[in-house]
C-alpha cells in the first residue's frame, strides 16, 4: 500500500468550492438571505398599501420617490439594511467561520487533512466576503423586482439633477450594492479574527455585531470626531456620490482604502492567532 501523495495534486479550488457550497447549501444562509429579501418587499408593500403619500424628508432616504419610480425601492432598502440587517447577517457568517468549525469539531479534521492553516483562513475569508456580496445583491435584486412589479418605472433623476435612463439607473443600483459589499469587508475580517479566539460561534457572532453597533454609535458622537475617519462604519452610508453625474469615486476610494486597512489589521490578528493556536476542540 503506497500512501505517497498522488502525482496529480488537486487544485486549491477544491476546498474553496467546497467551502462555498457548504455555506450556500446551509439552511441558515438561505434563511438570512430570505430575511434580507423581505426588507425591500416590506418597504414596497408598505408604500403601495399606504393611503397617505410619503412626505419628502420623512422616513428613510428616497422613500418619497418610490411611488413615482419603482427603481428607488432597491436604493431605499439598501439604505435601510446598512446599519443593522446587513451587519447582523455578515456578523453571523464571519463569526462562524473558524469558531463554527471548532464547535462542530470539523476544524481538527480540516487541519489534519491537512488544509493548511493559512490557506484555510484565506478560504474562510473569501467565503465570508462572498456572502457580503450575496447579501447586498439579494437586497438590491429583491428591491428591483418589487419596484418593477408594484410601481411605474422610468428615467431617474439623480442627486445632481441629471436624468438617466432605466438601464443606467440599474447600473447605479449595482454600484451601490458593490459599495455596500465593500463596506462590509472590514467587518468580515474583524468577525474572522474574533472567530479564531473562541470555540463558541454564537459568542463570535454577537461580538462582531456588537462591534458594528459600537462603531456606528461612536461615529455619531461629536466628542469622538477625531476618531470618526478611522471607524470601519464611517463611510457605510456614503454612497450618495454614486448617484451624481458624473460619478464621484472619492468616497468609494476612501471607503475601499479604509476597509483594506481593516482587512490587513484584522487579518494579521487572525493569522497570528490561528497559526499558533492549539486546536483542542
Amino acid at each position: 500500500m503506497t500512501g505517497a501523495p498522488d502525482a496529480r495534486p488537486s487544485s486549491s479550488w477544491s476546498l474553496m468550492a467546497s467551502e462555498l457550497s457548504v455555506l450556500f447549501r446551509r439552511l441558515r444562509t438561505w434563511a438570512m438571505l430570505l430575511a434580507l429579501a423581505a426588507i425591500p418587499l416590506l418597504i414596497a408593500a408598505a408604500v403601495k398599501l399606504s393611503s397617505h403619500p410619503v412626505a419628502p424628508g420623512r422616513g428613510p432616504p428616497f422613500l418619497d420617490r418610490i411611488t413615482q419610480n419603482g427603481l428607488f425601492v432597491a436604493v431605499t432598502a439598501m439604505t435601510v439594511s446598512v446599519p443593522l440587517f446587513l451587519p447582523l447577517t455578515v456578523g453571523v457568517v464571519a463569526g462562524d467561520t473558524v469558531a463554527g468549525e471548532a464547535n462542530l469539531g470539523t476544524l481538527r479534521y480540516l487541519l489534519v487533512a491537512p488544509a493548511g492553516r493559512v490557506r484555510l483562513l484565506l478560504i474562510k475569508y473569501v467565503s465570508a466576503a462572498a456572502f457580503c456580496l450575496a447579501a447586498t445583491l439579494t437586497v438590491a435584486a429583491a428591491g428591483a423586482l418589487a419596484g418593477v412589479a408594484l410601481f411605474p418605472v422610468g428615467p431617474v433623476t439623480l442627486l445632481s439633477g441629471d436624468t438617466v435612463g432605466v438601464g443606467e439607473s440599474l447600473v447605479r443600483s449595482l454600484l451601490i450594492a458593490a459599495y455596500i459589499a465593500v463596506s462590509l469587508l472590514g467587518l468580515s475580517a474583524i468577525g474572522l479574527a474574533i472567530s479564531t479566539f473562541t470555540d463558541v460561534p454564537v459568542g463570535a457572532m454577537a461580538a462582531t455585531v456588537v462591534l458594528s453597533v459600537v462603531s456606528q454609535v461612536a461615529d455619531n458622537l461629536p466628542q469622538l470626531e477625531w476618531l470618526h475617519p478611522w471607524l470601519f462604519s464611517h463611510y457605510w452610508l456614503g454612497f450618495a456620490d454614486l448617484l451624481r453625474q458624473p460619478v464621484s469615486w472619492t468616497s468609494f476610494g476612501n471607503n475601499a482604502l479604509l476597509q483594506a486597512a481593516y482587512i490587513v489589521a484584522a487579518g494579521a490578528l487572525a493569522y497570528g492567532r490561528f497559526t499558533s493556536k492549539d486546536v483542542l476542540s
Partner: peptide, 27 residues
C-alpha cells in the same frame, strides 16, 4: 481524533467529500 466530527446538515457522503477536498493531494 477524539471521536468523529461532521457537518450535521450534510449527508455522510457530502461530509467525506468536503473533508477530502481539504487535502491538497487528494485527487
Amino acid at each position: 481524533v477524539e471521536g468523529p466530527a461532521f457537518y450535521p446538515f450534510l449527508s455522510g457522503a457530502a461530509n467525506l467529500r468536503r473533508l477530502d477536498s481539504a487535502d491538497l493531494h487528494a485527487s
